[in-house]
Computed example of a mutant assay.
Amino acid sequence: MTSEHEVPADELERFGAYARETSALTVMFHTRVAERMGLSPTDEKCLDLAMRAEGPLTAGRIAELSGLSTGAVTGVIDRLERAGYVRRVRDPHDRRKVLVEVTLADENRFSHLFEGARQTLLEVLGRFSPEERAVLERYNKAMIEVFRRHVVDA
């Protein structure tokens, strides 16, 4: 573990509690969104990964991004395909590869489900100055990077 500053035990405990509460709320939110889309939370998050990608992805890449096994991802893709959210297509550069392509004609079809989260973000960020938001952004980027390395890529 590399650290520039000592983190007192009480701060670690408080920030751990904040992270657990945020995680629980996020899971509950995405469970509700997924339910309204007719998906499981895992399927909804994998669809989100595919939608944010720059073009179609292989199942292996979805597995890397999600931390799921390739077998689990195959099941996710099967369910997303049956629900009409994705389709399997041949890679135009390597016909042996299969890519997963998002088929949502209207990606804004479910944007209303995320409006509360967007408003929450706007309200909370509005409480901080641009300088404070820069620190928050640095914290979030570091958290994502280190969390991915220690948990998802582990």
Rank of each mutant, 00 (worst) to 15 (best):
R90Q: 14
Y85P: 05
G116E: 15
R96P: 06
R109C: 12
E81D: 11
S111D: 07
E107A: 14
F110Y: 11
E115P: 12
V86F: 00
R87K: 14
F114M: 11
R88Q: 09
E81I: 05
R88K: 09
S111Q: 04
E115C: 10
E115A: 15
G84T: 15
F110W: 12
D91G: 01
L104A: 03
R96K: 07
F114L: 12
L113N: 02
D106H: 03
L99S: 07
V98S: 10
V86A: 02
L104E: 11
A105M: 09
V100D: 02
V102Y: 00
L113H: 08
R90P: 01
N108P: 07
R109M: 10
R87S: 12
L99I: 07
D106W: 08
V86I: 01
V100A: 07
R82T: 14
R95F: 04
R87W: 03
L99N: 01
Y85S: 06
T103M: 07
L113V: 06
E107T: 14
H93Y: 04
H112K: 10
P92N: 02
E101A: 06
V100L: 02
P92R: 09
N108V: 08
Y85W: 02
A105R: 14
G116R: 15
D91A: 07
V102Q: 06
L113G: 04
V86S: 00
F114S: 05
V98Y: 06
R88F: 01
K97Q: 12
D106P: 09
F114C: 06
E81T: 11
T103R: 06
V86P: 00
L104I: 01
F110L: 07
D94P: 03
T103D: 08
A83F: 02
E115R: 15
H112R: 13
L99T: 00
V98W: 02
R90F: 07
E115M: 14
E115F: 15
H93M: 06
V102R: 00
H93D: 09
V102C: 08
E115K: 14
R109Y: 04
F114N: 08
N108W: 05
H93L: 09
V98G: 03
R109G: 11
R109L: 12
E101F: 01
F110E: 10
R95N: 07
D106E: 11
E101I: 01
V86M: 00
F114T: 08
R82L: 14
V100R: 01
E115G: 06
E81Q: 10
G84R: 13
V86C: 01
V89E: 13
D94S: 05
E107P: 13
R87A: 10
A83G: 13
D94K: 06
D91H: 04
A105S: 11
G84E: 10
H93G: 04
H112E: 10
D94E: 09
D94C: 05
F114E: 08
R90W: 02
Y85D: 08
Y85Q: 03
L104W: 00
K97N: 15
R82G: 11
